[in-house]
Simulated scan of single mutants.
Amino acid sequence: MSTDRPRGPGQRAGLTRQAVLDHALDYVDRRGLSALTMRALGAELGVEAMTLYHYVPTKDALLDGMLERSFTLATPALSADADASSWQQGLREFAHGLRQGLLRHPGILPLATSRPAVTPETLDRVEVYLRMLTHAGFDLGRALHMINTLVLLVVGHVAAETQVTRQAEAGGAEWLSALDPARYPLMVEAAATGRGTDDAERFAFAVDCLITGFAHSAS
């Protein structure tokens, strides 16, 4: 006997909240956040806009869910009793995972810089990180500062990365080739060799510096 629950009025077979959020992320990457409407997203999924309200009750819920989906897919899910002694590696994986997630869906960046991530699924994830840090000996306020500082670093770095990439694709880096090597020998050498220009390397360096500073602040 089938155990499938009957679908409610307006629901569509195979459509889930996660599928709606994933399609919304893809849509925003292709067309931009300003183009996202319930009607436009419904057309992408082949359903009426009203059908989407069975999965996300409002446009705000859709936006919150997109942030949640991006955040929870990208950041490692720690167990509730995560080892406090590995907090540095935990934060490092958190930062690198979030960067990769935002690079996969850069269209979400305007939301990440202007809207708090406050769904229960997102807050559950943050709660575990806070528990890990407080068990490691950090004051609760300091622990929250640590997480927020990392998030700001990630969002700002990804925003800069994507902007530089767009400028380079549009030929906006021509000024590098015009540098006078007699006046700027070190900058010309860096541009020619690529030293100090790798985004992932710079990001890892910044994260390591922050985490080292966090560790010293606890002593």
Rank of each mutant, 00 (worst) to 15 (best):
H157C: 04
Y55I: 06
D4G: 07
S70R: 11
L103D: 01
G194N: 03
A13L: 15
P106N: 06
A168H: 13
A218I: 06
A215R: 15
A206E: 14
V151R: 14
G196H: 08
L102R: 03
L133T: 01
G65T: 04
N148G: 04
V188L: 08
D139T: 05
L179E: 06
A178V: 10
G8E: 13
R195T: 12
H135N: 15
S177C: 09
Q163V: 10
L98E: 06
H23G: 02
M187C: 08
Q88V: 07
L123G: 00
V188R: 12
F205S: 08
A191F: 10
H216T: 06
G10K: 10
T134M: 09
P57T: 06
A160T: 14
I211Y: 04
V126T: 06
L21N: 03
T58Y: 11
P76S: 01
G8N: 11
D208M: 03
S79E: 15
E44I: 00
D64W: 07
Y53A: 09
S79V: 12
L52Q: 00
E127Q: 13
L133K: 01
L25T: 00
D60H: 10
D64N: 13
R17Y: 07
R104K: 14
S70Q: 15
Y53L: 14
P57H: 04
P9E: 07
L36M: 05
K59Y: 15
V20M: 02
V207S: 01
M146W: 03
P57A: 08
R125E: 01
T16E: 04
L123C: 06
R99C: 01
L152N: 13
T51K: 06
A200Y: 11
T51H: 08
H135M: 09
T134F: 09
T113V: 10
A218N: 13
Q163T: 15
